[in-house]
């Protein structure tokens, strides 16, 4: 879909921040994904028009990055880390449990990702880029259910805040001090 009027203005403001317009491709793709839930071909064409390159160049750039989903995904994007620290502390079990549980659920997309830079909270995963740490597979299901029911407020599938109270980041604070 094309940008809404409001987002188009945001997009033009983003382009202004860079000395060369092409640099704005990544932020604009995030913006488009915030709006549509994925990065559509129409959006890539409009980004191309805004930054004055060919649509092929925009697609060329965007297809390199795993965070840009060029096909629709569920409202909740659950990214489970299975890299080396989570590997030995239960990450793969969480991934398997969630994958089985939500295999047929269109609202939830489960993906396996690389290290999320939160290994003191291993095993960890993200729901729309919000961190959930030190969980068992059953806890993980509970958390996803809380997001589904609206008990927890989710970010967009590109990780943009929808509720400013989340900035205090209760889940991230826990146990993060290190070396008390």
């Amino acid at each position: 879909m094309a940008f809404t009027q409001e987002n188009r203005e945001k997009a033009l403001a983003i382009v202004e921040k860079y000395p060369y317009t092409k640099s704005a491709i990544l932020p604009l793709a995030h913006l488009a994904q915030d709006q549509d839930g994925y990065l559509s071909e129409d959006a890539m064409r409009e980004i191309a028009e805004i930054v004055q390159v060919s649509p092929a160049e925009v697609q060329g750039t965007c297809s390199f990055y795993t965070m840009f989903k060029r096909k629709p995904v569920g409202k909740l994007l659950v990214s489970v880390c299975t890299n080396v620290t989570c590997l030995v502390l239960g990450g793969p079990e969480i991934h398997e449990t969630l994958s089985n549980k939500y295999a047929l659920d269109e609202d939830v997309t489960i993906e396996e990702v690389e290290c999320l830079a939160k290994c003191d909270g291993a095993p960890c995963f993200q729901v729309n880029y919000e961190f959930i740490e030190k969980v068992s597979p059953q806890d993980a299901i509970d958390v996803v259910e809380e997001y589904k029911s609206g008990e927890r407020v989710a970010r967009t599938v590109s990780g943009t805040l929808t509720d400013s109270s989340l900035i205090e980041g209760p889940t991230l604070q826990k146990g993060q001090k290190g070396g008390e």
Binding site: A117, G159, L161, G169, L172
Partner: peptide
């Protein structure tokens, strides 16, 4: 900034 670090981006 790494894209996945949403809270870091907000902060």
């Amino acid at each position: 900034l790494r894209g996945e670090l949403a809270l870091a981006y907000d902060r």
